[in-house]
Design a protein around this nucleic acid. Structure first.
Lengths: 263, 263
DNA sequence: TTCTGTGAAGCCCTTCACAGCT
DNA sequence: AGCTGTGAAGGGCTTCACAGAA
């Protein structure tokens, strides 16, 4: 998902596995909740449960950061909060720009967890002149023409793209040219970026499609007995009508779709 | 990310790897674009480029579905669109309910890619009575009290949670009790669900935190010479103030944070 | 010849199980 | 005794490289 990790630095490259990095925010959230309840220490078992992972994985993850626990006791909550925050770079303040203040962009700007945790919205940008000046989440929208200047003035290195798919690559190119090196992309497109620029994408419809796959498999398990009648809609009918032009000599993984594939 | 995959069915469990399933929507999108441009066939190389993966991976992925290509030629676009759609269960229509029609929920409801591709919003639900009846994306919001009836009447098996974190688990429990077996969670909480229920989560702030981690590493590479002065904000200062109460005998992975950890 | 389909190798991540510290 | 930290084993995914179909 993250792109362009090439130049392994000669510097103290501690080499924390990507999978571990992706879980650190989870641990941090669980720890913050404990901290707010003034819980002083927590065991790997308890914390793992709160973060929704198993304890062995959590301990392994923490072992990449250092030996921050106490055997026979557990982990000091405050101390871990600090260490993970530092590891993630959240003890500093990251100015971000968001491009595309439509429905989704506005929702993101209003999203609380966005502004907290070390991130500061330096600017909201949109190509629509009628949006300009209108405050969203208390921040006036600026025109995208000012993108380069804003990035430069604020030392922005992280950009969020919430434009329509068609505009995303173009916006991306401008962000990168202006010096942004990390991009969070909500537009349903594959962005291409030069080496050294990280892209993470969040795609709502993809997540749903993955769920649908598993949902179908669950239905399929029951359907062996009741067959297609289980499905709420006319799936069986669709299976016989939705297929495109006939082809020859197809070998599916099992005896699928025989009726739709006449030779 | 997906939870509760336990009972391996005795049915024709074709066993498509989860990583492959997660990429199928990507391929499908690229193929749909080609289809709209009336491109008849595509090679693994071209399609892989469009989907942002490498061609070996794509071919391996497709091999789990069956032998759908033609050696020396490539893949038939229309045919592949159909096969992947079917595999993902998108040839049928999935009614979904969305709970929590705040900023984010409204944005999601308005999101085009959501309603397309086999998904149909059966209902929008909110706990706020003042929202009820108000149309969002052309669909009137209903009160959450009707959740069970709506799910039952519409045969809903997929739910989307876009409530505040505090309400998410409770909503989740009600969804599951009412028969929902797949949940897409936008609330920043870990949901616990019984076996057999799939949960996927989308967490905006986590994505940003992961980017910040990489961003920090990039900055760190340059900082060996210029040191902390590179950072836009007072990171070095924070490093000396933000640490919690002192501890003893810590061994960090390298010589980190010596000043903050007085013995 | 071209490009797919796939064994085999390699890598990364997870899980196990226990040594070792407190 | 309790819980962390970690080698080692195991599993899954990616990449390679080439056999084989068109």
């Amino acid at each position: 998902m993250a792109t362009g990790r090439t130049h392994r630095p000669a510097t103290r490259s501690r080499g924390i596995p990507e999978a571990t990095v992706a879980r650190l925010p989870l641990y941090l959230r669980a720890l913050t909740a404990l901290s707010e309840r003034s819980v002083p220490t927590v065991s790997s078992e308890e914390l793992a449960a709160a973060a929704g992972v198993n304890s062995a994985k959590l301990r392994k993850d923490f072992s990449y950061l250092g030996s921050y626990g106490t055997r026979g006791v557990g982990y000091d909550v405050e101390y871990l909060v600090y260490q993970i925050s530092r590891e993630l770079g959240l003890t500093q303040d990251w100015p971000i720009v968001m491009v595309g203040i439509g429905n989704l962009g506005a929702a993101l700007a209003n999203y609380g967890g966005f502004a907290s945790r070390g991130f500061r919205v330096a600017a909201l940008l949109d190509a629509d002149a009628s949006m300009v000046g209108r405050p969203v989440a208390g921040i006036p929208v600026q025109h995208i023409d000012d993108l380069e200047k804003i990035i430069d003035d604020n030392g922005v290195s992280i950009g969020v793209i919430a434009t329509p798919a068609g505009a995303a690559q173009q916006v991306c190119d401008r962000l990168v040219a202006a010096g942004v090196t990390s991009i969070l992309n909500f537009a349903p497109t594959v962005l291409s970026v030069p080496d050294g620029v990280d892209v993470r994408k969040v795609d709502l419809s993809i997540e749903l499609q993955i769920l649908a796959f598993h949902e179908q498999r669950k239905a399929g398990e029951d359907a062996v007995i009741a067959d297609a009648a289980v499905l709420p809609t006319a799936a069986a009918v669709e299976r016989e009508t939705a297929a495109p032009a006939a082809r020859t000599g197809r070998k599916g993984p099992d005896g699928d779709v025989p009726a739709v594939m006449p030779a």
